[in-house]
């Protein structure tokens, strides 16, 4: 079964199978040493740039700002949820998100 993933409305949404599942404007905690110098970035999600999959994991690259240090930019790939049995399950929004390690 294929899953349809899209960024829509000027980067406001991640749509999964034509359902608006993840939206901007939230605060995400990131373990993303490449994004800024903070041990844990506190990122305001301003725009989704891209969405993709790594296995069952749905990932996105986000334009945002760390409100702890003020750094702005685009993140590496971050997980937002998983597709299980054809259903999208979003990760708890309070979880720490780690960028993909190659």
């Amino acid at each position: 079964m294929t899953t349809s993933l899209r960024v829509l409305d000027d980067g406001a949404w991640i749509s999964v199978d034509d359902h608006r599942e993840v939206r901007v404007s939230e605060l995400w905690r990131l373990d993303a040493p490449g994004f800024c110098g903070c041990d844990m970035a506190d990122l305001v999600v301003e725009n989704f740039q891209e969405v993709g999959v790594d296995g069952a994991r749905v990932e996105t690259r986000v334009h945002g700002q760390c409100i702890a240090c003020g750094e702005t930019g685009v993140t590496d790939w971050l997980p937002v949820g998983r597709v299980r049995g054809g259903e999208f399950v979003e990760y708890d929004r309070s979880c720490v998100r780690r960028t993909r390690r190659e």
Partner: peptide, 10 residues
């Protein structure tokens, strides 16, 4: 703003 708009942060 957030009353109706998807993009707005506040």
């Amino acid at each position: 703003g957030t009353e109706f708009c998807s993009l707005s942060i506040v």
